[in-house]
């Protein structure tokens, strides 16, 4: 009860990963990202961070393409916001696949700062489909702990 009186405006924490077609330029990817950011800000959410994983080799062809650009969005909002984002992603021709996941319940927006967007290089080497060591070293929501999995001892 005491919680309710103090936390007047609590939101849920979500993440959405979407795959963009690999032939898109950085500018076009940025346009898609800004549209998603605009939806979150318009619908009463708080956008925290975009992480672009870069062009990666997919494990099976997605939209008849062997690679895709992975973009990870981290934001706060309500359930209606998620369905609105997904409805829009479905309409974007550039986006071939997406998935949203809830990370936390009853999160105070003030406790989560807006972070700078991150852009990773992706898989440079085609012979390394499981690559992304750079991304493995990076954890978007680990709560600041050391938190690294014991086996991410790749070079880098």
């Amino acid at each position: 009860m005491a919680d309710k009186s103090t936390g007047a405006h609590l939101l849920r924490e979500y993440e959405t990963v979407f795959l963009v077609k690999p032939d898109l330029t950085d500018d076009n990817v940025d346009k898609v990202k800004e549209r998603v950011r605009g939806i979150v800000n318009r619908d009463g959410g708080k956008f925290l961070r975009f992480t672009t994983w870069g062009k990666k080799k997919t494990m099976y062809p997605v939209a008849k393409q062997p690679r895709a650009i992975y973009v990870h969005a981290h934001y706060l909002g309500g359930s209606a916001l998620v369905s609105e984002i997904e409805r829009n992603l479905r309409n974007f021709d550039e986006v071939s696949r997406f998935m949203s996941k809830k990370l936390g319940e009853r999160v105070d927006p003030e406790s989560k700062p807006v972070l700078e967007d991150v852009k990773l290089s992706g898989d440079v080497d085609d012979n390394k489909p499981l690559g992304g060591a750079e991304r493995d070293a990076y954890r978007p929501y680990d709560g600041g702990d050391e938190g690294g999995f014991e086996d991410n001892s790749f070079e880098n």
């Binding site: 996941k101 992304g132 493995d136 938190g147 999995f149 086996d151 790749f154």
Partner: peptide, 15 residues
């Protein structure tokens, strides 16, 4: 290791 969470984005752990 309680610090490690199951994460669908962590390919190297899931493999």
């Amino acid at each position: 290791d309680r610090n490690v969470k199951v994460d669908f984005k962590d390919q190297s752990a899931l493999k």
